[in-house]
Design a protein around this nucleic acid. Structure first.
Lengths: 211, 211
DNA sequence: GATTTCCCTTGACGACTGTCAAGAATTTGT
DNA sequence: ACAAATTCTTGACAGTCGTCAAGGGAAATC
């Protein structure tokens, strides 16, 4: 095989790999939509296929089994949700601005992506039972923790304060707040979103106290 | 029917009702054990029956359907877990004593009932999708919120402090801490239990600050 | 243009699900 | 003791599940 042929073969293979990965993501997207509507327990492969433009058999062409599919979904989900707050952190000039931006994104995300959030909590619960999900879920949880930490530590920096709470604890607190707000919002209480912003303000004032 | 006969009939009926309710609870207990081991998604009625001393058909003699069974389980669960901290609140004489007792029960419960706790978070996630569970789950959540509030407000009282945080927010914070500790504990990190006690101490100091 | 490779559909399989009915076994009432 | 009401078992039902194999059709390769 000549170097040129090798290059071409490489290009072809690369293209195939890309197409393969693309379709996997496309199917993962359909799966995520189905999962966020029905929850893990009630989502079947046939239902997922019906939310895509393909038949149910194709899922086993792109994924080895159901766990493989769900795992890919989780990773695909991560890629989207973790960077949501980075813009706010990067552009905010004052602590007040950062706090307002943080709250705004939080509220918007709660209102606009409630179904995806409940799926996240569902899958996180599943990972407490199913060991095969645990590593990926833990990785996402960690990156969410990092995200919260970037925000809070930057906030403290802008405000000229110091933090005495460790990142995991900080994340746990805000996650608890968000989770409760999500439950209220999904049960029809639209004011839960605004209440979340207030609660975050209040907790932020406590965990980063004036010295 | 004579008054005596009426009384007897009543006694009989009462006894029957009691027996009926007793067996329902007994089956609910088996169901809770199964659910806490497998999770909601993987628990079937036959599996539940195998964890009891009866056959699978009996479940439809005592419960109208699966939702009825699970709902009864949730209520049965509530009756057990909500009163766990009342003793500590009632007997503690000082704020330090209360804090220590709170932490101790928290840690013991995490270590000894981890499977039941993960089931609770699983069912709470299910209620975000399945409306039929929502009311019962919300009721339990509310009573847990009340429990936390009894502890924290009593703590503030003993310490001579005032609280500026509303009960739902307070519950959300501690629930977030507990949930994260549970995940770590179940993934093999035994130190997560003791870390929980430390975190609770720390957060308690923040939410009920020295004035 | 023929052939090989890839992508996708269809239909089937065994296993499992919730539900229910028929009847055996047990308890209760007389 | 017998009769009646109950509690429980068994087996079957219609449906769904994940999985897979056979093959059609499209696209790429030569």
């Amino acid at each position: 095989m000549t170097p040129v042929a090798e290059k071409n073969a490489d290009r072809v293979s690369r293209r195939q790999v890309d197409k393969f990965a693309e379709r996997r993501d496309q199917l993962a997207e359909a799966a995520l939509q189905t999962l966020s509507e029905l929850g893990y327990a009630r989502t079947s492969l046939r239902e997922i296929a019906q939310n895509s433009e393909f038949s149910h058999g194709v899922l086993h062409y792109y994924f080895s089994d159901k766990v493989d599919l769900i795992t890919h979904c989780v990773r695909h989900y991560k890629a989207r949700c973790v960077t949501r707050y980075d813009g706010v952190v990067a552009t905010a000039q004052t602590s007040e601005e950062l706090k307002a931006g943080f709250g705004r994104v939080l509220v918007d995300s709660l209102r606009g992506e409630a179904s995806m959030h409940r799926l996240w909590y569902d899958l996180r619960s599943q990972s407490l039972f199913e060991e095969s999900f645990r590593a990926d879920v833990a990785a996402i949880d960690k990156s969410l923790e990092n995200m919260i930490w970037r925000i809070v530590s930057r906030y403290a920096e802008l405000a000229g304060r110091t933090i005495t709470i460790a990142p995991p604890t900080m994340y746990a607190v805000f996650d608890g707040l968000f989770q409760q707000s999500l439950a209220r919002y999904l049960s029809g209480d639209d004011s839960a979103a605004d209440a979340l912003a207030d609660n975050v303000d209040q907790i932020l004032a406590l965990v980063i106290p004036a010295r």
